[in-house]
């Protein structure tokens, strides 16, 4: 039971990092990113491939070579780098255009990455997925033990806290002020002499780094990843968390993540499934999140915890 609760807190904390990243992109700067699952995927697969031990096996005549056996901090950093680089590549053609284009391109790129993970079996083992991904300090604490779960929990919460502090400092910094100005009025901001595309690009890359690290933590936590864990549904769930919690407010992002991913998605796992209809309960859950998203947008567009107004000398 203890390890079960620890597990739920860890997984919800990982999703909270994703919501936080989305908040930096959309809540601060107004960048419409529908590719959360794609950045999450690239982070998870990068770290999984780097961390797992070198192995060669012959399956149906195909030679799989997965793994470099590197240590886990390298996996985390590499996940941040590749995911940030992906953000940079996506940003080049789209960030100078209207926000809608970014949404369409990210939604497609995330889906293409999932096809790559399914089809490039030499690298990702296809739908079988990568298994036996090493957790931190696995030599001393084997993966199934309680100690290993606690290490993962502490590591995840530490990174979440670090990212939260960075995001909060960013919000009140002059950099964050420019981001909010871009969100409110891009043309006016550029007339004030701010390089708008540059700011957008940095924000987009930072969001990518957050999501990549979340992916690496996810791969280490679940120890086995497969393409099905990165379907667009997760992008949509993260949006549900952010909008319900309150975009522009980091506490709102965490609250939304805890409420929807923790209470609603994980908490309703105990419901008995209806025999012969394994898809029914999950589908009904997602329908409820979708309706909640639309209702919040209509009735309380600023979410449960709205963005705080910054105190300045004039407003005091």
């Amino acid at each position: 039971m203890t390890s079960f609760i620890i597990g739920i807190i860890t997984i919800v904390a990982i999703y909270c990092i994703l919501v936080l990243a989305l908040n930096i992109r959309w809540g601060y700067c107004g960048l419409l990113d529908f590719g959360v699952a794609g950045f999450f995927l690239i982070g998870a697969y990068t770290s999984a491939i780097l961390i797992s031990a070198p192995s060669e096996s012959y399956l149906f005549g195909v030679r799989y070579t997965v793994g470099f056996g590197l240590s886990w901090p390298i996996g985390l950093i590499a996940a941040a780098v590749t995911s940030g680089f992906l953000a940079f590549l996506i940003g080049i053609p789209t960030l100078r255009l209207r926000g809608d284009y970014l949404a369409i391109v990210t939604i497609g790129v995330a889906e293409i990455l999932r096809y790559v993970a399914i089809n490039e079996k030499w690298l990702t083992r296809g739908v079988q997925g990568i298994r036996n991904i090493a957790r931190p300090f696995e030599s001393s604490f084997p993966a199934a033990s309680l100690a290993s779960d606690i290490i993962m929990l502490v590591l995840t919460l530490a990174i979440l806290t670090l990212f939260f502090i960075i995001a909060s400092r960013l919000f009140t910094s002059p950099f964050g002020r420019v981001l909010r100005a871009i969100r409110e009025d891009e043309v006016a901001t550029s007339f004030l002499g701010k390089p708008v595309s540059h700011f957008k690009m940095l924000t987009f890359i930072l969001g990518g780094i957050y999501m990549g690290v979340a992916g690496a933590l996810f791969a280490m936590y679940v120890t086995a990843i497969e393409p099905y864990q990165f379907i667009p549904t997760y992008t949509f769930l993260m949006w549900g968390c952010l909008i319900v919690g309150g975009s522009g407010n980091n506490w709102g992002a965490i609250l939304g993540g805890a409420l929807i991913m923790g209470l609603f998605i994980q908490g309703t796992r105990f419901l008995p499934s209806i025999s012969g209809q394994p898809q029914l309960i999950p589908a009904l859950r997602y329908i409820a999140v979708g309706i909640l998203l639309i209702v919040v947008l209509r009735l309380r567009p600023r979410g449960l915890l709205p963005e705080k107004a910054i105190k300045t000398e004039e407003t005091q």
Binding site: A103, W239, I243
Partner: peptide, 18 residues
């Protein structure tokens, strides 16, 4: 338009899961 896009994403998932 961007909020409309988010709402349409929500609607898309409601229809898909239905």
């Amino acid at each position: 338009p961007l909020v409309l896009l988010i709402a349409s994403l929500g609607l898309a998932f409601v229809i898909h899961n239905s």
